[in-house]
Amino acid sequence: MEQRLRNEAKALLEQGKVDWIIGFESGSLKFATTPLITKDKNDADRLVINPFMVNNLANFLTEVKGRVGIVAKGCDSRSIVSLMQDNKVAREDVVILGVPCRGIIDLSKVERLVGKERDELDDITREGDKVAIKVDGEKKEFLATEALFDNCLACEFPTPQEYDILLGEPSTSVVNKPAAQEKIEKLKEMTPEQRWEFWKNEFSRCIRCYACRNVCPACFCQRCFVEETEPQWVLPVPRWQDNLIFQIVRNIHVAGRCTDCGECERVCPVNIPLRSLTKEMYDLVDELFHYKAGMDKEAAPLLIAYEYAEAEDLFR
C-alpha cells in the first residue's frame, strides 16, 4: 500500500496532474507521523502509511493554492467532501488518495497499557484485531479496541467515501461503540447542574490556545468570532465562562461539518474531553435532521438545507 502510494504520488506530480501532494511522513518522535506537504516528486518516497497517521489533512487543503493530491482516511475524506459542500474546494482540484483505515493507534493509550513511555517501546504493529507491542524483547498482545482512539471505536466509514485512487481493499474497522460512547453516557446520566459543573471544571483548565479550532478542517472562518472586537463577543483572556462559550459556539458553528475525526480532543494540551461535545453534536444533527457530515458532495450543508416541516415541537 505504501509503495503504491509513493508511485501514484510521484506519477501525479510528474504528469502535472497535481501541484501539491499532502500526505504523511515519519516524524521526529518515535512512531509519530507528521504531515508532508510538497511539490517535489523526490519527496514522494518519504510518504508513509501506518496506524499512527493521526492528522486530518483536509485542514491543509484550504491553505495551498493549485491542484492537490491528498492522502485521506475515511473521516478525512468526509471532511474533504464537507469542504466541497461549502464551496471551499472544487472537486476537480483535488485528487483523493484514499486509504482504507483500520483505526489509528492512540499512543497515550498504549503507554498506559504497557506502563512505559513510547520511547522505551521497540515496536507497535497491528495484527488483525490485535495490537502487538514489542517491549524489552518481549511481545505483548492487546485487543485493538483497547489501543485505538475513542473516535475510531465509533467509526462508521473507515473506507473513504469519496476518492480517485483507493490504495487497497475497503476495510472494516474494529468498533466498540459502547466504549466510544462511555464518557457521553456518563454525562447524560447526570443532572443538568452536575453536567454544567463538569464542563465548568473542565474549561477552567482551558488556556485558549485555539489548537482545537486551528486543527479543525470544519473551522475555516477567515476571522473567528472570538477575535472580533467590535462587538467583543468573548473576552480573549482564558476564563471558564468565555472558554465554555467559545467551545459551545464553535461546536454549533461546525454542526453538520464535524465528522468525528477526533482531532480537537487529541491536540488539546490540557486534555479537555472535547469529543464528548463534538460527538454529541454529531449524533444530535443525525437525530434531528438525519444528516451526516461529508457524505454527499452535491448535498446542501446542514445549516443551509431545510424541509418545510421539521423540529416543530421546539417552536411555540
Binding site: 454525562l187 447524560k188 443538568p192 447542574e193 452536575q194 453536567r195 454544567w196 459543573e197 463538569f198 464542563w199 465554555l244 459551545i248 461546536n251 454549533i252 454542526a255 461535545l277 454529541e280 453534536m281 444530535l284 444533527v285 434531528l288 435532521f289 446542514l302 445549516l303 443551509i304 438545507a305 431545510y306 424541509e307 421539521e310 423540529a311 421546539l314 417552536f315
Partner: peptide, 21 residues
C-alpha cells in the same frame, strides 16, 4: 426562518446537553 429553525433547534438541544435549562 428555516435556517433559523435548524440553528435554534441544535442550539437548544446542545445547551440542554451541556447543562443549560
Amino acid at each position: 426562518n428555516y435556517r433559523a429553525r435548524r440553528r435554534v433547534a441544535i442550539t437548544k438541544k446542545f445547551l440542554e446537553y451541556v447543562g443549560i435549562e
